[in-house]
Amino acid sequence: MNPQVEMNRWKRLVVSDYWVLYLSIACFLVLFPFTPRLASIENIRNIFSNMLPLLVVAIGETIVLITGGIDLSVTSVIGLSSVIGASIMSSDQGLLAGNPAAAAAGVAGMILAGVFVGWLNGIAVTRLRMPPFIATLTSMMFFGGLAVWLTQSRPIYDLPARFIELGQGAWLWLPNSLAVAGVTAVFAHVLLSRSLLGRWIYAVGTNPRTSLISGVPVNRVVTFAYAASGGCAAVASVLYTARLETGSPVLGQRILLDVIGATVIGGTSLFGGKGNALWTVFGVSFICLIDNSLNMLGLSYFVVTMVKGGIILFAALVDAARSRILAG
C-alpha cells in the first residue's frame, strides 16, 4: 500500500470531528476481551450514572473555554447548590418542608444559585478585568467555603421523593438523568452552532478586539458564558444530589480536573474560539470509559490517576498536531 495514502488517512482521522469517539470505541474494543463485564448492562448503567452529571458540568465549561476563559468554580457551585436546594426542600429542616411545591422550589433555588455565582464570575472577569483563572479560583474557594459554613459541614437528609425521582427515576424506559443531560447537551449544541449568541461566543473567543469593533457586546457575551457554566453546574448538582439523596457541601469536589480534562480531550481549546458540545460529549465518554475500565481491570487508583494525566498530555499533543495539519 502506498504510505502516502496511509498517512493521509491517519491525518484525516485525527482532524475528524469524531476522532475522540473513534478513540473511545477503539479503547472499548481493545479492553473488552480482558474485561467482558465492561459491556454488562449493570456496568454500562454505572458508567452512565458517573458520566451524566460530569457531562452537564463539562458542557458549561466548554462554553466558557470557547470564550477564551476558564471556570474553576464549578465544583463549588455543585456543593453550594446542593446545600441550598436541600435546605429549601428537606422534609426534616427545610424552609418548605412538606410543602408539595418543595421539590420544584428547591430545583429553582439550586439553578438560580448556580447562575448567580456564574454571573458574579462574569462580572469579575469583564468589569473588574481579573484573569479568569484566578477570579474563578477565588470564587471556588469562597463559595465552597460558604457551602460548608452554611451547613457547618453537616449533610442534609430527607429530601422529598419527587426530587429524588428526578435523579434516579425513569420516564417509561428513559432514565430522567439521561433526559436532563441529553436536553442540556442538545440545547448547548443548538445554542453554540445555530444561534446568534453562539456565533458571538466563538467570535469573542477568537478575537475580542475584532469582535468589539464589529459590534459584538463582548462583556455581555462573556458574562453569559460564565452564568451558563454556573447554571450547568447547578443542573449537575441536581443530578448528584438526587442520586445521593443528600444535600452535601462537598459534593463533586473531586471532579474539577476531570471536567477540564474531559473538555480538553474532546478538543476544545484553552486558547478560546474552538470547541463544541459534541466534542465534549465524546471527551466525557472517553474519560469515563477509561476510568471505569481501568477500575474493572483491577488496576489501582494510582495507575488510573497517572493514565488520566497521560491522556491529558496526549490530548494536548494531538491538539497541537491537529492545528499543524490544518494549517499546513
Partner: peptide, 21 residues
C-alpha cells in the same frame, strides 16, 4: 490582523460578523 479580522475563523464567519443580528 488584530482588530479587523478573526484570523482563525473562516471567511464566511468573518463576513457575517457585523450583520449577524
Amino acid at each position: 490582523r488584530e482588530e479587523g479580522l478573526l484570523m482563525e475563523a473562516s471567511v464566511a464567519d468573518n463576513i457575517a460578523l457585523v450583520c449577524l443580528p
